[in-house]
Design a protein around this nucleic acid. Structure first.
Lengths: 211, 211
DNA sequence: GAAATTATTCGACACGGTGTCGAGTGAGCA
DNA sequence: TGCTCACTCGACACCGTGTCGAATAATTTC
């Protein structure tokens, strides 16, 4: 189901090492459903992958490096979701915002454990922090840009707060809510409520209230 | 500067054990300014307090228990801050909300390291989670109550989202922003910007936009 | 104020996890 | 066939944790 590519375009056959790396990553993703990253011992990872503990260090530098690799698996989907922030044509704002938020929630539902571990590791691992702050930057950037477009068009309420500050708060808010939502049992009703609430806050904060 | 009381009303003299517990707590709070809780080894705590490592376990069950005790030190101030959520008399909403948010930001500035450690430990330690979810509950509860009062008075925009769902999102948002704000260098300008932005989101989400 | 009790401290120990090293092993290729 | 390089392994040194029982300091009891 999941896989890591060799360098793009490489026709090199999947080597044995790739397979073990894969097995480690799969085991890690599975274990993260139960425990946090630093509760996972290296030998849990390797016994799950059918190799000895020391072999782990041939494939990864550390547990954090595993998380980094897992993050890359998810990042692609995240960027797709980011593209949704940009409003399409004449569609009303409520629709595009709801759709974008729905997409983010769905992604957190699909990869909650990895995303939560990544968020937590931001405070710990320089490597992970760099990666995810870049992701966050793109989200915030495109949101701020969109807010500015709407303000220039006279559709959105003017600042202060600046488009950038507002975008930062809104994006962080989404992340926080997705994090805590993904901790609970999967529930379509709860998902819908969160999407509705977040959408309402976005709309009111950016556009004001529809009378 | 900081101290822990014996049972209230007890006139028992400060025992030696109380003093070492204190020293451990003070050392912990100081170390948290630099490292996260699980980067702090027990012997860093005890050497800071001038005792041997094993003596630590006489005073605390674990590192998490230390954090719990530190949380209690801060909790009081937090409840004072919570009381501010409730709007005072005829004061305009913008004022009371800005004042409440300012209070929270100030508290995070004063005790950022402890509060951050506590937030992180929520996912790890049952004890810490219980304590802080109770704190969060009170914040959310009183906010939701206030939103309902304003809605009934026709001042705030009606739901959905429900007062409770809206309150949850807004309170979490504040926490998240305070967390990341307290990570950066102390800056009055930045503080002001964050307070303004959060206030704006609260006002627009609860009351709608002033034309 | 001496004896008994309780509070506090300590060093030693067993345990479990980490990361490294050098010695294998084996698959593919010249 | 033999070389090379990717891969694997067990052994080892290290570090932090948590527990135990013995030693000592403080406090209470008589």
């Amino acid at each position: 189901m999941m896989f890591v590519m060799n360098r793009p375009g490489s026709r090199r056959k999947r080597s044995k090492g790739d397979l073990t790396s894969q097995a480690i990553l799969d085991t890690a993703e599975q274990l993260l459903e139960t425990k946090s990253l630093d509760e996972i011992a290296v030998d849990e990872l390797t016994s799950g992958a059918g190799i000895s503990r020391s072999t782990f260090y041939f494939h990864f530098e550390s547990r954090e490096a595993v998380l980094y690799a897992l993050s890359e698996r998810v990042a692609e989907g995240l960027y797709d979701s980011a593209a949704l922030w940009l409003r399409r044509g004449s569609e009303p704002p409520a629709e595009s915002i709801r759709r974008a938020i729905s997409g983010t929630v769905a992604l957190w539902r699909a990869h909650g454990p990895v995303l939560r571990a990544a968020v937590r590791a931001r405070d710990t691992s320089e490597m992970v922090r760099g990666f995810w702050s870049e992701v966050a930057r793109k989200f915030i950037e495109s949101t701020a840009q969109q807010i500015e477009i709407e303000r220039d068009a006279g559709v959105a309420v003017a600042g202060p707060p600046s488009a950038r500050a507002l975008a930062t708060v809104l994006v962080s808010m989404n992340e926080t809510m997705c994090y805590s939502l993904s901790l609970g049992r999967k529930s379509a009703a709860r998902d819908r409520e969160v999407v509705e609430t977040l959408t309402a806050v976005w709309l009111r904060s950016v556009y004001g209230v529809p009378q």
